[in-house]
Design a protein around this nucleic acid. Structure first.
Lengths: 331, 331
DNA sequence: AACAACGAGTCATACGTATGACGAAAAAAT
DNA sequence: ATTTTTTCGTCATACGTATGACTCGTTGTT
C-alpha cells in the first residue's frame, strides 16, 4: 500500500507498461533481459507490491473463494478448513471463510462472503443458497441439485458399523445425534437386516450443531427416557459427541466397551487420544476431502459447462478401544 | 460479478453518481427520498453487489486484515481464530489467514498475506517480521518491540501452578514442553521458591509446534531418561500435550493424579471432557483475547501515533481431576 | 425585485494496473 | 537498395466506483 508501479516506473525512467510487463512475466521479446533484471531488482529493493484491487479491477476477476462452514467447534471441520485453506492458496487464490452456528445464520454468512465477489463458493452442509446464484459452487455432505458435490457414502458407513457390531455379538443399538441427520433414517431402515434391535424409546436426538456437551446430554436423555432394557451399542453423531458420551459414562461409573460399545464418526485426532480410544469411521482417500472440494471448484472454473459431478467417498472403519463384545447381563 | 452500478444506473435512466450516492447512504439532501427508495429497490431486485476491487481502488483502502497463526492443530488457536474471524468481520473487514507449521515457513505465510495489501496484521507468536514493515500490527504471546502486543502473565501462571502443587503436598516437578518456551526458564527459576525440586535429568523437551503425539513422546522420554526417582507432578506445554501424556499413562497402566499430577495450559474444550478432566490454566477476561487483539489493531488504525501498548492477561487456575496429592511411595 | 440559500442531480476525474495497438530502430531477407 | 521481420518499448485505454465541483431550478429572505 505504499509505492505504486507508476512511481516505480518513474524512478526508473521507464513507462509503467514496461514495468508491468516485466513483473507479470510477459516480457518475452518485449523487454531486454538485462533491463528486465534491473526492473525486478528495483522492485525487490523498494519492496514493491502490486495493488490487488487495481489488478483485480483490470483483470475483471476476483481471487477470493468463499467458504461456508458450519462452526469450527466441530474439529472435523477445523481440519477440513485447514485443508481447504492450503489448497486454495496453492492456486493463488484467497479463501474467505464464514462460519454459521445455526441454520438461520447461513444467509447472513453467505451475504458476507458474497460481498467479496468471490470467484466461487464452497459450502459445507448447505441449507440455503439463493436461486439467483451466479457463481460456481461445490458442496459437501448435503447434495444440492444445482452444484457439484462431494458426498459420503452413508449407507456404506452404516453397514460398516452394523457389520462390526454384529461380528462382536451385539443385538441392539441406538443412535445419539442430530434429528435431521441423513444417517438416522438409514439406521432405522438397515438395523433389522443386521439383526439389530432399535426401539423407538431409545431414539433421542437434538437439533443444530452438536459438540461434546450434546453427547453428554443425549446420553443422559437416553438413560432417562429408555425403560429397563437398554441397547448394548451406541452410534454417536460424531467423535465429539462420542467423547462427550464417554466422559458422561465415566462420571456415571460406566465403562466402554463393557457397558456400552460406542462408535464415533469423522476420525478426529483427539478421538485416538481419548481413554478409551474411539472406534470410528473415517473418509480417507487421497487427496483429502478438502483438496477434492477445491479441485472440483477449479475444474468447474475451467469447464463451466461440463456436466454436474457428484463424488461419493467410501468410509473406512477405524477400530479403537471403545467397541467390544457386549456384556451378557446388562447392569 | 455480474451487473455493474453503471449499468444499473443506465437502466434507471440516472447517472451512476446518483446511484452511488444512494447506495452508500450519502444521499442526504442530494436525492429525493422516493427516488432513493426506487434505486434501492432496483438494486435489491437485480441483486446488485458493488465491485469490491473498484471500491477499494477508489477509496485507496483495503479491507483485509492479515492473520498469521502457527498451525490450527493447536485447538487453542482454532478457537482464537474463530474469535478473530468474528471480530474482524463485525467491523466490516475480512480476515486473511495464513498458517505456518514451522518457524521457517513464517516468511512465506507473511508474504502470502501481504500480497493482499492488508490494512493491518495480527500475528500469533511472531518469529519473523521484516524490518521494512509499514502496516500496523499487533502480536500475541511473544513481544515484538515494534508492535502493540497482548502477553500472558506467565510468571503469574507458573506461580499459580506451583502454589496449587505446594498446597497438594508436591515436592518435585518437571516440565514437558517446547525447549524455547518462555515458561521454561521461569519454571527453573521459581521452583526452589516453592520448595519444588526439578532435577536436570527430568527436563526433556522438543522443538516446533507440539500436539497430542508430542505429549506421548515426551512422557516416554521422561521415563527413559530419568533415573529411579521421578517427579510427582508434570507441567505440560499445553492441554493437547497433557491429553497425550494422560493417554500414554493409561497405556502404561499409570493413573492421574495417583501416579502423576498433570497440569495443562490453555483450557481447550476437550480438556474438560477427557478422562480424567484436566487441571489447567486459562486466560479469561472479557472480551476474549481474540476480541482484544482485533480491538487493539483498530485502535491503532484510529490513532497511528499513540504510544505503543502492551496488555498483560492474568491467568486463572481451572482445577480438574488430573491433579491431586502425591502418592507417599512412588511405584 | 434582487439575491442568497438550498434541493436535486449530473459531470468529470482519479484510484493503479494490464494489455492490445502502435512505433521506431535494428536485423534479416530478398 | 529495398522490403520484411524482429526486437524493445511506449501510448492509450478500460476496469467500476466514489466524490468534489458544478448546474439549474425552486424556495426563502430582505
Amino acid at each position: 500500500m505504499t509505492i505504486t508501479m507508476t512511481e516505480l516506473a518513474k524512478r526508473l525512467e521507464l513507462s509503467q507498461s514496461t514495468v508491468s510487463l516485466v513483473l507479470n512475466n510477459r516480457d518475452k521479446n518485449r523487454v531486454r533481459p538485462e533491463l528486465a533484471e534491473r526492473i525486478r531488482k528495483a522492485a525487490r529493493e523498494v519492496g514493491f507490491r502490486p495493488n490487488r484491487a487495481a489488478g483485480e479491477l483490470r483483470r475483471r476477476k476476483s481471487h477470493a473463494i468463499g467458504v461456508l462452514v458450519p462452526s469450527t467447534r466441530n474439529f472435523y471441520y477445523a481440519e477440513l478448513v485447514a485443508d481447504i485453506h492450503r489448497a486454495v492458496r496453492e492456486r493463488g487464490y484467497a479463501p474467505m471463510f464464514a462460519f454459521w452456528e445455526n441454520a438461520d445464520e447461513q444467509p447472513n454468512a453467505l451475504e458476507s462472503v458474497l460481498d467479496w465477489n468471490p470467484a466461487g463458493v464452497i459450502t459445507i452442509e448447505p441449507k440455503w443458497i439463493p436461486d439467483n446464484a451466479t457463481f460456481p459452487a461445490v458442496s459437501f455432505y448435503i447434495e444440492d441439485p444445482r452444484f457439484d458435490c462431494i458426498k459420503l457414502d452413508l449407507e456404506a458407513t452404516v453397514r460398516l458399523q452394523f457389520d462390526h457390531l454384529r461380528r462382536l455379538g451385539h443385538r441392539s443399538i441406538t443412535w445419539l445425534g442430530n434429528f435431521d441427520d441423513l444417517r438416522r433414517p438409514l439406521i432405522r431402515r438397515l438395523a433389522p437386516e443386521y439383526g439389530l434391535e432399535l426401539r423407538p424409546e431409545w431414539l433421542v436426538g437434538r437439533n443444530g450443531i452438536l459438540d461434546f456437551t450434546d453427547g453428554r446430554l443425549l446420553f443422559d436423555h437416553l438413560l432417562e427416557q429408555a425403560g429397563k432394557e437398554l441397547p448394548t451399542a451406541i452410534l454417536a453423531h460424531h467423535d465429539m459427541a462420542a467423547i462427550g458420551i464417554l466422559r458422561r459414562m465415566y462420571e456415571r461409573n460406566l465403562r466402554a466397551p463393557e457397558d456400552f460399545t460406542i462408535i464415533g464418526h469423522d476420525h478426529i485426532q483427539q478421538g485416538q487420544h481419548s481413554v478409551p480410544s474411539l472406534t470410528t469411521v473415517r473418509y480417507a482417500g487421497k487427496p483429502s476431502v478438502g483438496d477434492q472440494l477445491v479441485a472440483m471448484l477449479f475444474e468447474r472454473f475451467a469447464h463451466p459447462d461440463a456436466p454436474r459431478r457428484v463424488i461419493d467417498i467410501a468410509p473406512e472403519l477405524v477400530i479403537g478401544e471403545s467397541s467390544g463384545p457386549p456384556r451378557q447381563k446388562h447392569p
